[in-house]
Design a binder for these strands. Structure first.
Lengths: 122, 122
DNA sequence: TTTATATGAAACCAAATGGTTTCGCAATCA
DNA sequence: TGATTGCGAAACCATTTGGTTTCATATAAA
């Protein structure tokens, strides 16, 4: 199951900014194509093609209702991305550890990259 | 800082499987181009081009040593990806919550989105 | 039954992408 | 001083990508 065999994988699907915007939009509501396209400066057909790419990657699900097709987010495939990222998290954590050491050891300020705070530890 | 202005952003950089493999490889060691290319079925020049894309996205850092150029992973830009993902995590967590509720309350009409079978009844 | 709406399919196009081969140039080795 | 190695730049190529416009079809509304 979840045989993401298709020609479009998640990584490729989210590479395009329009498609990323589509995903956000469809996370809020299930929407028909025409309504969706109103949020974009490109043609309805172009949006439709993006939607197909997303569908092939399993990121949206379509449902026909009368003459319209409604699309909605299907977030599951993003797990793959999360998994992939996880591996690298290891490395930035190492960096953060190094940074923490550095900060603790004295010296001035170091623009904490991203961390809110926490890990004051000890 | 981190003004990811360049023409290649992280999302696009990781869209290509070869580049993803490159990132993993370079997470282990800093390596010169020729050594790197030995891990790939494509030409050294092609690898070099991929490396440039990654560099533009800030995902690798190059260092010249004598006649060779060594590349290593620079994981920071992946934060952007993580942030982006985080938004959607909300949704799959909701799904899990919904699922939990469903299972707990054993109602039938909810149409378990993705799970083909299992826990369909009680 | 006509007419209008919603959408996908097709054909087409320019630009980007992922490759290749050839070439030039610095840096090291004999 | 050559000769060799490591690498990027350039030119080139086929395919993919992100768009467009036009057309066909199914459903809904008059």
């Amino acid at each position: 199951m979840a045989a993401s065999s298709a020609k479009h994988d998640v990584f490729q699907a989210i590479a395009d900014p329009t498609r990323r915007k589509l995903l956000k939009l469809l996370s809020k509501d299930e929407m028909p194509v025409t309504a969706i396209s109103e949020h974009f400066p490109i043609s309805r057909t172009a949006v439709s093609k993006h939607l197909r790419v997303l569908a092939e990657a399993g990121l949206v699900k379509e449902r026909k209702i009368g003459r319209e097709t409604r699309y909605k987010l299907e977030p599951d495939p993003l797990f793959e991305l999360k998994d992939w990222l996880q591996y690298f998290e290891l490395f930035w954590e190492n960096k953060l550890s190094a940074l923490r050491l550095f900060v603790e050891s004295d010296v001035k300020e170091v623009e904490p990259l991203h961390l809110t705070k926490e890990k004051s530890e000890k």
